[in-house]
């Protein structure tokens, strides 16, 4: 019966493992403007990427946006997740559906929505002008990108947190309340520590999504705003330096995974004490 696995495993090996191995091999090659690529084994592309001030800037922008968006999503998502988790009766199903639904709609469509709202002649600026204020440039700023990314990742955060909060018995909160704890104390001493696995899992998932965002920074950040994922594609589409582009892709992958694992370990250790 294990043979039933064979087609799926072969597909993943051929279409994911082999291409990823090839891309990694490319990242160790040398680039030449005339021959494009020369086989070699050199860390040169990685060193060039981390010593180039432009790509440092791109990486720093990416990290700033990802950290801020993750933190905002956590702060906004926690109360929403709590309400969803503790909700009972006939509204729970529709609210869950309403949370999952945006996840299925592509990021391009949702970025188009924010362009409608934030554009120079968009809804918000029209409203400001109607109230007698001058317009504000909102599009093509880091703020617009963060707003766009936060609303893209919020449903992931809410659903991950809600599934953990659901497993915390309501009795624990009621007991604390009966013993005289105020709502904020109940949150700080009971709900937050018990939902920590959800906080860690949700933040890790959301951070990874933010680091790799493509459509939102391209459309809401504009041509001069660069994050890592669009920078990787530019190397393949606009220039011919594939070894360098491959190195950028793996730097993005390693930085994301490294920070996610370090962050999860740190959060968990802090609360075990």
């Amino acid at each position: 019966m294990a043979a039933l696995l064979l087609p799926a495993v072969l597909l993943v090996l051929a279409m994911m493992v082999a291409p990823m191995a090839l891309l990694f091999r490319y990242s160790l090659n040398l680039y030449s403007p005339t021959e494009l690529m020369i086989a070699a084994v050199t860390p040169g592309n990685y060193l060039a990427a981390v010593t180039d001030p432009y790509y440092w800037g791109v990486l720093r922008t990416t990290l700033t946006v990802a950290f801020e968006a993750t933190l905002i999503a956590l702060i906004l998502g926690f109360p929403a997740a709590y309400v969803l988790a503790r909700m009972q009766g006939r509204w729970k199903g529709p609210l869950t559906l309403l949370t999952v639904f945006p996840l299925m709609v592509g990021n391009v469509v949702r970025a188009a929505g924010w362009m409608t709202l934030l554009g120079n002649s968009g809804v918000l600026n029209a409203a400001l002008k109607a109230m007698g204020f001058g317009g504000i440039e909102m599009m093509y700023t880091q703020g617009a990108v963060i707003v766009g990314i936060v609303t893209v990742v919020l449903p992931y955060m809410i659903l991950t947190l809600a599934s953990v909060i659901e497993s915390i018995p309501v009795n624990a909160e009621e007991a604390a309340q009966n013993l005289g704890a105020r709502p904020f104390t109940v949150f700080r001493r009971i709900v937050l520590p018990l939902s920590l696995p959800g906080v860690v899992a949700g933040s890790a998932l959301v951070f990874i999504l933010c680091m790799n965002a493509y459509a939102t920074p391209v459309l809401l950040g504009g041509a001069r705003f660069k994050m890592m994922a669009p920078a990787v594609y530019d190397q393949f589409v606009r220039t011919t330096n594939w070894p360098f582009g491959a190195a950028l892709a793996f730097i993005l992958l390693f930085v994301t995974l490294g920070l996610t694992m370090a962050g999860s370990a740190l959060l968990q250790r802090r609360y075990r004490r």
Binding site: V9, L22, L23, V232, A246, A249, F250, L252, L253
Partner: peptide
Amino acid sequence: FLGTLLLSPLAVPGVVLGTALYVFFVE
């Protein structure tokens, strides 16, 4: 291990996987 392998394409960033597929198809 095989179960993890089959779910792993969802964990690799789309951008990195897209680039990898591009160079693979060229080869």
